[in-house]
């Protein structure tokens, strides 16, 4: 089963907090899925190319022309703003 330490590390990378009482359940459910997907280890895939997407992978270009957008609508969704900017909390700090 996946360790508590690993779960805490993944949670941190995912920007999620986990309460102590949730740890066991998460470890258990996480492990059952990991156990299932291990099935892919059976496959011999050394020479197989990867398929990451099915699109034509061509660039779509447009002219570099500024367009008016409804800024008000977009700003209305922000939790904090000042003038026409999104306002955020401190982004530079020392890690605890």
């Amino acid at each position: 089963m996946i360790s508590e330490e690993e779960i805490r590390k993944i949670a941190k990378l995912s920007y999620l907090e986990i309460k102590d009482e949730e740890i066991d359940e998460i470890r258990e459910k996480f492990s059952s899925i990991l156990e299932y997907v291990k099935k892919l280890q059976e496959l011999d895939i050394s020479d197989v190319p990867e398929t990451a997407n099915l699109s034509k992978t061509e660039n779509v270009f447009r002219g570099d022309i500024a367009k008016e957008k409804e800024v008000e609508d977009l700003l209305s969704a922000l939790s904090r703003k000042k003038d026409n900017y999104m306002q955020v909390k401190k982004i530079l700090y020392n890690e605890d």
Binding site: E6, I45, E50, T51
Partner: peptide, 21 residues
Amino acid sequence: TYTLSSGYYDAYYKRALKART
């Protein structure tokens, strides 16, 4: 996040992309 993270990417995500092919 786990399957894409360093150390697990090849074993999980990359392998899945090949299986997808």
